[in-house]
Design a protein around this nucleic acid. Sequence first.
DNA 1: TTCTTCATCTCGAAA
DNA 2: TTTCGAGGTGAAGAA
Lengths: 243, 243
Amino acid sequence: MTADSAVETLSYPEANTARDLVARAVDRGAMVTLFGRCTVEYDGRAASSLGPGDRHVTLKPDGASLVHTDEGQQPVNWQPPGCEHAVTVTDGALELCSERSNPDETLEISFETVAHAAAFDVSDPEELAVTGTEADLKERILEDPDLVEPGFTPLATERATPAGAVDVYGEDESGRTVVVELKRRRVGPDAVGQLDRYVDALERDLHAGTAVRGVLVAPSVTDRARQLLAKKGLEFVSLEPVQ
Amino acid sequence: MTADSAVETLSYPEANTARDLVARAVDRGAMVTLFGRCTVEYDGRAASSLGPGDRHVTLKPDGASLVHTDEGQQPVNWQPPGCEHAVTVTDGALELCSERSNPDETLEISFETVAHAAAFDVSDPEELAVTGTEADLKERILEDPDLVEPGFTPLATERATPAGAVDVYGEDESGRTVVVELKRRRVGPDAVGQLDRYVDALERDLHAGTAVRGVLVAPSVTDRARQLLAKKGLEFVSLEPVQ
DNA sequence: TTCTTCATCTCGAAA
DNA sequence: TTTCGAGGTGAAGAA
């Protein structure tokens, strides 16, 4: 990354000047950012309209667009990767359009004023390494199945059932089938419903009369989830992904 | 928004110069963006590590932080609103730290090179107006209950049950209780589980022997969801939020 | 492609 | 503060 090539910026450019920078940057696969007063229209899975205000806009080389206000972690409007970015000047105003198909969606940004425009040539070879996920919880259990209960034996992970894949499938000390559903954090009623669907599907899939135990493994459960577990005859084991 | 006050930028600044700009901007409640080669460490609900690469960093006045690579709609690392942003120079490197409590979480960004730094004074009075939401679907049904089925009479929305609030609660032509669950888009098994919980809770809550009908209203359902509906004795009505 | 589930989900509303 | 469900959820993996 050198000073000559990596960054190109404009302060309060004319619309045509900004358009040229954006067009060139999009063409060469650079990341573009704009800041200024704009309106935003979206139409696709839903539809939205945003009146004039100061926002920060990002166009990524993979086709994603982001419109950020001064508040919130989430963009106020956006377009996912895979879009075509187009930039034009209409009636003296810089206009961006990001479009995609399947589903057909359009994002249109019209700038009343462009306060800042920048293009960045990005090189990022690194992958993010995350720990503390559900996958970590699964590994913890496979390494030490007694954490679920003494005598538990895992037989498969992601075992297919008519209701979907079971996180951990195994049997208890006395040979009964056990379905384990894992959650990396405190769970509500939805996770209980999920476990119940798997247990139900397996009881039908295996031969009649086979009792299947369902065990929810998570750091903790809410009250309603606990009541639902009791009603469905399911069990809970408290365990965290790490430590 | 004037040229004098709204935007302040630096290209390839010294670490101390960048620190001063960031510190002043954070102090006055401006939005800050940085672009350059950096590493990122996160520790909190999970933990992650990201080796050196070129990224775009945003610090928002509400305490949110975003780290974006050249790919993806989602930031590779982030911190939600409510954090304290701190900026320092350590061993000649610009370092940002965004920290919050409950849960305790820390995001640390260390710049090897700052290619660009900018501060933006933002004014955004507008609210986003969205259509095509679940609320629109609800209004559509309340205006014309026959869309659910001829003779359907809504009696309440968001009616409380021991399992949570029911979207639309009413009765059919023959006076039987009907629970309606709304989804703005095609649904899977999770939505069926949700409806089933409400129906079950209401049957217990009302007097014994009261049959409660459950109707899922959505544009469409997946195969598994349809099977699950059949097994649970629940119904489906195809309806979109708009048009 | 569609389907299913995970996510540092985020966000908002209500208790 | 916690809980619960909506979301233009996004993203990944499998069928």
